[in-house]
Amino acid sequence: MQYLLLIYRSDAEYDRMTADDRKKLTGEYGAFTQSIIQSGHFKAGDGLQPSTTATTVRVRDGKILTTDGPFAETREQLGGYYLVEAKDLDEALGIAARIPTAKVGSIEVRPIMVYD
């Protein structure tokens, strides 16, 4: 079964990181990504630009409305994702717990909808 692992972190905290801290975090993500590629769990994944680059789209009464930024103001913003193959939710949760940002942010684990 496939699961989407949504990575939430604070843009403000990331902005306060030193160049060395960012380099270390990038290395941790590289090692994690290689580990799930080698284990066969990896399907796709990427980081996202900061939430300040987001545009939210809504359609109301047939009119397209756009708003700069994410849908809601929150302490943590969506920073990236992994799409993984896992035998069950427990295995997906174990993979999610190894994502470096899980130490300071949160990882939302959601099963992918299967259409028959």
Score class of each variant (00 low, 15 high):
61 D>G: 14
101 T>K: 02
47 G>T: 11
104 V>G: 03
30 G>Q: 08
88 D>L: 06
58 R>C: 05
102 A>Q: 09
55 T>P: 00
24 K>C: 13
19 A>Q: 15
90 D>T: 14
108 E>G: 00
72 A>K: 09
50 P>H: 11
21 D>F: 02
68 D>R: 10
23 K>D: 14
62 G>L: 06
78 L>V: 13
7 I>Y: 03
33 T>M: 02
102 A>M: 07
4 L>F: 13
76 E>T: 00
95 I>H: 01
3 Y>M: 08
59 V>N: 11
80 G>E: 01
91 E>Q: 15
74 T>H: 06
39 S>V: 11
46 D>Y: 09
3 Y>G: 01
25 L>M: 08
109 V>R: 05
97 A>H: 13
81 Y>H: 14
92 A>C: 00
1 M>F: 03
90 D>W: 00
28 E>T: 14
22 R>L: 15
85 E>N: 09
50 P>T: 10
44 A>Q: 14
101 T>P: 04
108 E>N: 02
113 M>Q: 05
41 H>R: 10
111 P>Y: 00
14 Y>F: 15
16 R>G: 04
31 A>K: 15
89 L>A: 10
3 Y>F: 15
32 F>W: 14
29 Y>D: 11
96 A>C: 08
105 G>P: 12
68 D>L: 10
12 A>C: 06
88 D>G: 11
113 M>A: 08
17 M>N: 11
51 S>V: 07
94 G>L: 05
6 L>A: 12
8 Y>C: 04
86 A>D: 12
110 R>D: 00
92 A>M: 04
35 S>R: 13
45 G>C: 03
96 A>Q: 04
67 T>K: 10
12 A>D: 15
112 I>C: 12
77 Q>Y: 00
17 M>I: 11
2 Q>G: 09
68 D>Y: 04
27 G>Q: 03
44 A>C: 05
24 K>Q: 15
71 F>E: 03
69 G>Y: 11
52 T>D: 08
32 F>G: 13
80 G>C: 06
107 I>F: 03
82 Y>F: 15
26 T>P: 02
18 T>F: 05
84 V>D: 04
46 D>K: 12
25 L>W: 00
16 R>N: 13
50 P>A: 05
37 I>A: 03
71 F>N: 01
49 Q>K: 05
22 R>V: 15
39 S>Y: 05
33 T>Y: 10
72 A>Y: 09
85 E>W: 01
